[in-house]
Design a protein around this nucleic acid. Structure first.
Length: 500
RNA sequence: CGGGAUGUAGCGCAGUUUGGUAGCGCACCUGCUUUGGGAGCAGGGGGUCGCAGGUUCGAAUCCUGUCAUCCCGACCA
């Protein structure tokens, strides 16, 4: 299919994403001042499309796909093809009758994606992932392992647990404190604003401090609490808050709400939603901001002195922690996210009224999934993992051309003629081949062939003229094979098929 | 959004500290030679220094503003 890039605001408002998607969505207006966006993804549009065309359970499942340009006003585009504001994506959507159908589609696509990335020659790993702005529940990302990757993944050294750091979660393991509870005291902490400074000043570990961070909500502020030695996982927090994009409250906003920046604490705050990480109640005799310039409170205890409105998992899990599934230890690696699969369930079909009639003539919402591959980014990842000092080493399956013919020069007409003959023979054999007939010296062409990374190079030169031989060089291994020119096409055809 | 850097010939850069109207490599043009791993020699063309304003006898160079690009960070109150 080819779905529209320019999409009306209306369907995004219906799905609720017009507000959730935030600044990343490229919004435009037409001459009548009506709102549109440049599609960052296509769930809404495809759902409307299917809604109009599919009525019966007999027509399900449907799994349409397209390869198209997406637009996202990225907060920081970088590294060329890795993260651009405009990029090519292969996106597929599945529409099934029920959850079992979705499960089947999801497994099929999960398998297919693994096959695709394997054929691309990638060293990758599927990991449990957050579904972010796409929504739904249940998602996996396919991570090409690379130091330059922007994403961090955690995986167990014993079992097969692997997850994006955005979603990785481990059970709360801290012991419940059963000693005496201290009384709240207000202590002067001059010039101590950061957790490290306060902890050092009071001679306590940072895990005794409870950090309070103030975020901006659509209406008002939220105070987010976490143990001093932990870090907030904004992906988890934004899911809890239902906000696509998180922003800290400004100093002015905090002051207006009666908070003192740098010395915020949860005790005694009013009209502000308090959201605490699961570990917070387990810290006995906490150190928190005192709500006044230059002071902190000690001996603060959860439950007695304050209470959170929401208690949930908010923290980033770090390498070295225990695996949530076994007794193994989590290790971390960096990866390039080349693909992701999501179970959307009925999020969009409910919102947009995409339903079908079942065997009993009863209306049912379609159960959806969606599946994306970053095409340009995948190519970038392939190159990242397949190169040497001379250039790219394309895996055959994704090489722009499978082979190049290099006539060593164009002075002797024999080279040109033989090259053209071979070129025709290879085309006939359905080999994707380039004839490098530029007026360049052999050395230039050889170096360019290495740089561009054709898997196979065929040289037509003196050996061809004198003995009827061509030289085939395999880019990946450097192996060189001489054989009669008549046999070259068949030989390569076989090699290419084997490599695919 | 915060921080840092850069904008000079088609491309990559030097020159800016100590103002005196621009230089190198590659590419390009001409000729001769060379031709299986980025050719050699000789000759030649091309820029007003991101943009705007200011200081000065004189600005790529100093000052102010502005635009663009790239890099780093994005939290912990």
């Amino acid at each position: 299919m080819s779905l529209p890039i320019v999409q009306p605001a209306e369907i995004w408002q219906k799905s609720g994403r017009w507000s959730v998607y935030g600044a990343e969505m490229w919004r435009i207006r037409d001459r009548h001042n009506r709102e549109f966006c440049l599609g960052p993804t296509h769930e809404e549009i495809i759902t409307m499309q299917i809604k109009q065309g599919i009525r019966s359970y007999k027509q399900l499942p449907q799994r349409p796909y397209q390869i198209a340009t997406k637009f996202r006003d990225e907060r920081r585009p970088r590294f060329g093809l890795m993260r651009g504001r405009e990029f090519m994506m292969k996106d597929m959507y599945s529409f099934d009758r029920n959850e079992e159908g979705l499960e089947t589609s999801y497994q099929l696509l999960y398998q297919a994606y693994g096959n695709i990335f394997s054929r691309c020659g990638l060293n990758f790993r599927p990991v449990e992932a957050a579904s972010g702005a796409i929504g739904g529940s249940g998602s996996h990302e396919f991570m090409a392992l690379a130091e330059s990757g922007e994403a961090e993944i955690l995986f167990c050294n014993q079992c097969d647990y692997a997850a994006s750091v955005e979603i990785a979660s481990v059970p709360v393991r801290a012991e419940k404190y059963s000693g005496p509870l201290a009384q709240v005291e207000i202590v002067a902490t001059p010039n101590c604003q950061t957790v490290e400074e306060v902890a050092a000043f009071l001679g306590q570990p940072t895990s005794q401090v409870v950090k309070s961070m103030c975020y901006h909500l659509e209406d008002g502020l939220a105070l987010v609490l976490i143990r001093g030695d932990r870090q907030i996982n904004e992906e988890k927090l934004s899911a809890v808050l239902g906000m696509g994009e998180l922003n800290f409250a400004t100093d002015e906003e905090m002051r207006a709400a009666g908070l003192v920046p740098g010395y915020i604490g949860p005790v005694g705050v009013k009209n502000i939603k308090i959201i605490a990480d699961n570990e917070v109640p387990l810290v006995a005799n906490q150190i928190t901001g005192a709500g006044q310039e230059g002071y902190h409170k000690t001996g603060v205890n959860y439950g007695r002195d304050y209470q959170a409105d929401i208690l949930t998992d908010l923290r980033i899990v770090e390498a070295g922690e225990q695996c949530p599934h076994c007794s193994g230890t989590l290790q971390s690696a960096r990866g390039i996210e080349v693909g992701q699969v999501f179970k959307l369930h009925t999020k969009y079909s409910d919102a947009l009224g995409c339903s079908y009639l079942d065997e009993n003539g009863k209306e049912q919402p379609m159960v959806m999934g969606c599946y994306g591959i970053g095409v340009g980014r995948t190519m970038a990842a392939v190159i990242e993992q397949n190169n040497d000092e001379y250039g790219i080493i394309w895996p055959v399956a994704v090489a722009p051309y499978e082979a190049v013919i290099v006539p060593v020069n164009d002075k002797d007409p024999v080279f040109t003629e033989k090259s053209e003959e071979l070129y025709q023979a290879m085309l006939k054999a359905k080999i994707e081949v380039v004839l490098d007939d530029r007026k360049e010296r052999g050395g230039v062409k050889f170096n360019d062939a290495d740089l561009i990374g054709y898997p196979f190079r065929v040289t037509v030169g003196n050996k061809t003229k004198n003995d009827g031989l061509v030289e085939i060089k395999i880019r990946a291994t450097g192996e060189v094979i001489d054989l009669p020119i008549e046999e070259a096409a068949a030989f390569l055809k076989e090699k290419i098929a084997a490599a695919k």
